[in-house]
Write a protein that binds this DNA or RNA. Structure first.
Lengths: 134, 134
DNA sequence: CTAAAGTCTGGACCATGGTCCATAGTCAAT
DNA sequence: ATTGACTATGGACCATGGTCCAGACTTTAG
């Protein structure tokens, strides 16, 4: 335990080998220790970190966000971590609001469209052709 | 009128010149008519089409979607246009649901985080470090 | 007529988050 | 020892939706 190859690491973290190297290149994982052959060696710390990245990603954080989050985590700066989470949440809420705005517009057009008949009577086509939407 | 340059077209449609050429290359605009010099010439039809594209984009359609929409519009196929709109709406609704799921998870963590104190007591860091989120 | 502004082309480049490839070297099992 | 599986590297490539550039040519205003 605590000394395994990139293949095992990737497998245990549930990511592709290329992704591990990609994360290393992009500063999400520290440069791995190497065997005399040049093969990377990993321990539990890297596995944890990789899982952290995976989870943060599933919470909607970008890799850039995650780099920041990892720094804050290393600093054990709870206040900044909370702040970063709040910012991300605000970002998610804004995206939801925008999608809801767009969805509402589309829903209205769909409701008004009979689904048959002359193209001139199709509110969807008319909206795309004639109206200033915003 | 009805005979203007790419610059005027772009200006009147509210897009960049490069975007017009990009759309032409990618089949969203038909190949433009040319002057003897090779300069593109446009009329009202192209302006309308470009505005159609802009509006469809603001309704959340991708350029690929819009290519389809333009074909359906040319066919005057109201039924298919309505169906395309419904599919896009379903897509938007799914994206909203996913963002809400993620937002709810984040909100819960933020609420539980005191914002100070030991890193071990930060639910956000703990979630990223320990839990299987999904 | 001249100078400035506009347009042409092909191709490079941006961000995002990877994936895939060839070539070469290494490790593990039999 | 050999074979098959694994890993190394740099760089190309994917989608998306453009943006920007150089170098050459054209149009327009004064």
């Amino acid at each position: 335990m605590s000394n395994f190859s990139i293949g095992k690491l990737a497998e245990r973290a549930g990511v592709a080998i290329d992704t591990v190297r990609y994360y290393e290149r992009n500063g999400l994982l520290p440069p791995a220790g190497r065997l005399a052959s040049g093969y990377r060696r990993y321990g539990e710390a890297e596995l944890k970190r990789l899982r952290f990245i995976r989870r943060a990603k599933s919470l909607g954080f970008s890799l850039e966000d995650i780099r920041t989050l990892l720094e804050l985590s290393a600093e054990r700066n709870v206040a900044k971590v909370k702040r970063a989470a709040q910012l991300k949440l605000a970002d998610i809420d804004a995206r939801i609001a925008e999608l809801e705005r767009v969805g509402a517009g589309l829903r209205k057009l769909i409701r008004a469209c009979p689904g048959h008949g002359r193209a001139e009577a199709c509110p969807i086509l008319n909206a795309l052709t004639d109206e200033e939407l915003y």
